[in-house]
Design a protein around this nucleic acid. Structure first.
Lengths: 197, 197
DNA sequence: GAAAAAAAATGAACTAGTTTAAGACTTTTA
DNA sequence: TAAAAGTCTTAAACTAGTTCATTTTTTTTC
């Protein structure tokens, strides 16, 4: 995908919450970096300090931690038109605990820490954009944290399929298990049970 | 607590992220409503559309849902200097699924939906305040949702005690169980085990 | 397009957490 | 301050989800 196309995508995403003038659009896109990452490659690894916040133009990635037994726990899948990264490390400059790995060849736009600051100084409207973006993410993470402790694995699986029909077809069962918080063996059982119903 | 004291508290909280002039402080506090709620009373119930976002001046409250079996799942405890409410219902005007109940006599400051809008129009700096506030909440809910699906109940209990030492002494074991996502019986076992260690 | 690697399925033995029930202790209320 | 209501503890029987081991199926790689 060329510059123009990916800039159109990201500007469309932003225009859901704030209106920008042509000048502001130009200023904004000038602060972005194009990033490509091949299937199976890391965008970022635990221990590093996150350099960017990302917008996905094309592809699919998974964000995960490894626990002390080396078991992966996926915190999100990101596909086209999603934002991802590690806001915690990005804002505190502390080393991240997350890995971000491409599950397909992917194209992203990144904004660096320095440019993120410049953005707020030069186009304060972006405070509003991020206020709304975070507000919405917050709502979904509050719900997810509730579901994690109150629903059965089968209910969480059914919810995921309903909520993310586009994602479920693009990821492996194993990764879905790591997102739901169960073993690959158990998700296999759940799926064959659900299909039998 | 009188107006002055509670206004000082909320302004101190806000000054961690943004600086306000005297005039802005006056404008801001004029948009707030004082609310008192007695122990065991509801600040809000499921089915209602949330009218306010709240800041706790004094007391302790729990925010929870009831599942289809009538079992409560607590999504947060809020004490002095915390913000609470249901941003989802507050912003979408859809009926909330949450109950907010005082576990102690409590005093709050509320901002109504109308005043929240006025606030952003008149003091746009508040976009920044809420951007940062939501950003930070988001970090902790992302972590919580990961912990919910990846840690054992015992680990979640130990984490809670470490992270919220001030809260753990003020709530019942039963409510802590409803937060951790286990039965009161099982938390009782965990606690006696942890104490024996 | 064959070989290697990874993902998915299945099953048996196991463990973390639930359910139910009963008794002891603590707090609330009249 | 006594009675009632709610909270906490303990224990036995149960169930959702894990672990480990093996086979089959699919995907990747050269």
């Amino acid at each position: 995908m060329n510059y123009k196309e990916s800039h159109t995508l990201i500007l469309n995403n932003i225009s859901r919450f704030i209106d920008l003038t042509e000048l502001e659009k130009q200023k904004y896109t000038s602060l972005l970096t194009e990033i490509k990452v091949k299937k199976k490659d890391f965008l970022m690894q635990a221990g590093e300090v996150t350099k960017y916040e990302y917008f996905i133009v094309k592809g699919c990635l998974k964000v995960y931690t490894l626990d002390e037994n080396g078991i992966p726990h996926i915190s999100m899948f990101a596909i086209e038109d999603y934002w991802t990264g590690d806001i915690s490390s990005f804002t505190t400059k502390e080393p991240s605990r997350y890995y971000i790995k491409a599950t397909e060849n992917s194209e992203l736009l990144g904004i660096s820490r320095v440019n993120y600051k410049i953005l707020f100084q030069e186009i304060p409207k972006f405070e509003r954009f991020y206020r709304i973006l975070y507000q919405r993410s917050l709502v979904s993470y509050i719900r997810r944290s509730n579901h994690g402790i109150s629903l059965t694995a089968e209910e969480r699986y059914i919810n995921f399929k309903k909520k993310y029909p586009k994602i479920v077809t693009r990821i492996t069962q194993k990764d879905l298990a790591a997102y739901i918080g169960i073993t690959p063996e158990f998700i296999s059982k759940i799926i064959s049970k659900v299909n039998r119903m």
